[in-house]
Each structure stands twice: as structure tokens, then as C-alpha cells.
Design a protein around this nucleic acid. Structure first.
Lengths: 113, 113
DNA sequence: ATTGATACATAATTCACTTAGGCATAAGAC
DNA sequence: GTCTTATGCCTAAGTGAATTATGTATCAAT
């Protein structure tokens, strides 16, 4: 395990919420693929982390689900609730603040455009 | 506890190494004060996290220590070893990569200048 | 004298995540 | 045809960095 994977901790909920905000109705496996693509292969979400997180966000009222039968398999789509949309926005703002703060602490110039 | 404090996880070693790189010989309590100042009050390192981290970084050969008697109290100064200097640089680079990747995933424009 | 700041340290607990399973269908390689 | 890889969901045990809770002691200020 690299040190950078340590940095990833605490970002999973934010990532999931933002992906659902940007892409709408998405299923678990698809989220892993999107994040892998967006991160140029460097972020590989593990199922052991992803599924419990989806369930938790749903239990908190941020996500709602819809099951679709594809062939003989069940696919579970997740989408943001109204509350979830607001939460997604908040979490991204929070992340931007965090980056700015860390930029100051680490004396790295960071600008959001 | 806010969600942003969750984001902070995994950054402590990087912060400590970078502060020691930028300020040279520094003691534990001083590190908490510097980080608080640099982060405009938003990052308050807890002693329960800081001291074990300092001990661990020392055990790994990244830090060396020097005890100074101030009045009747012992103050323990930490400074980077040669290995620690290189590690500090690597960790900051890693953090910059992480921010860039997260910027891409969260569709937030981030530029380092 | 009592509070708050300075200064170190350890121990129990928490909790997000990793690791390791389990189950099943679909597609492609050989 | 069967073997591997990809698709697709899930839970449970274990890990480890953090929080929370203490403990000890000096110093300055009111």
C-alpha cells in the first residue's frame, strides 16, 4: 500500500456523491469504472468499501435506489435524493476548502479557477 | 466532528514532515501551533495523534531528536534526517498528485502554480 | 490560589477502510 | 467445451490511524 492511498481515506463519500451528481442514475460497478477512468486508473475503489458506503448513504437519505433486471442479473441503480444533491454540493465545497487549507499548510500554491 | 476532519486523515505525517522541512528544528507543541497558524485555525492537531506520529517517524529514521532543558521543563526538538528530507519531498509530491487526481474526479479545476 | 497555557506521554476506543471471502451470470480466449 | 476475465452484488474479520480520555508537571497571569 502506498502512502497516497492513505490520503484517499475520507474521500469516498464525497466521490460517490459527486459522481452521482454528475452522471445521474449509476450502479455500483459503474461507479468504480467511472472513478477509475476519471482518475486515469489511479483510484480503484474496492467493493468492500463501496457497497457499505452506498448502503450508508442510502440509509442517511442521500440516495435512493432502483433495481433493474438485465438478462438474468439484477443491477441496482443509485441516484441522489434532493437531500443528496445538497449534500453533494456541500461535500465538494468542503473538499475545496480542505485543499486550500492543505495548500497553505504545505506551502503549495493551489488555485481554483 | 465535521466531514472535513475525515478528509484530514492520512495527512498528518505529510504535515509534520513538511513543517519540519520548512522550519527546521521544532518541538511537538510548536508544531501544533504552527499548523494552527498556517491553517488559519482550522487544523488543530491533537496530542494523542501527534506524539505517536512523531515517535513513529523517528523510529522509521525520518526524524532525529534533541532534548533541551528550558527552565525546569524538558523540551524535545525534532529535526529531519537526510532520509527524512527526501521523504518530506516525496510526501508533498504525492499530495500534489492526489489533489490533482481528486480535482479530476470531482471535476474541480485545480492548478498548481 | 486557581485558571489557562505550555509540554510531554500513553491507553482504550472508534470507525473507515482493506482483505478475504461468497455467489452468480456473461463474454472471450484457446 | 472449458477456463479465464469481466460483470455485478454482498458481508465479515481484521487493521490501523485517528479520537477521546487520562496522567503528569511547569509557568504565567489574575
Amino acid at each position: 500500500m502506498t502512502h497516497s492511498s492513505e490520503l484517499l481515506k475520507g474521500t469516498l463519500q464525497t466521490i460517490v456523491l459527486k459522481v452521482l451528481k454528475d452522471y445521474g442514475k449509476t450502479y455500483g460497478y459503474e461507479i468504480t469504472q467511472r472513478v477509475k477512468a476519471l482518475s486515469d486508473g489511479s483510484i480503484a475503489l474496492t467493493e468492500g468499501a463501496l457497497y457499505p458506503t452506498l448502503h450508508k448513504l442510502e440509509a442517511e437519505g442521500f440516495l435512493k435506489t432502483e433495481k433493474i433486471i438485465v438478462g438474468k442479473r439484477v443491477r441496482k441503480y443509485y441516484m441522489l435524493t434532493l437531500l443528496g444533491k445538497s449534500e453533494a454540493k456541500d461535500r465538494v465545497s468542503e473538499f475545496i476548502d480542505f485543499m486550500r487549507t492543505m495548500g497553505a499548510v504545505l506551502q503549495v500554491e493551489i488555485n481554483r479557477q
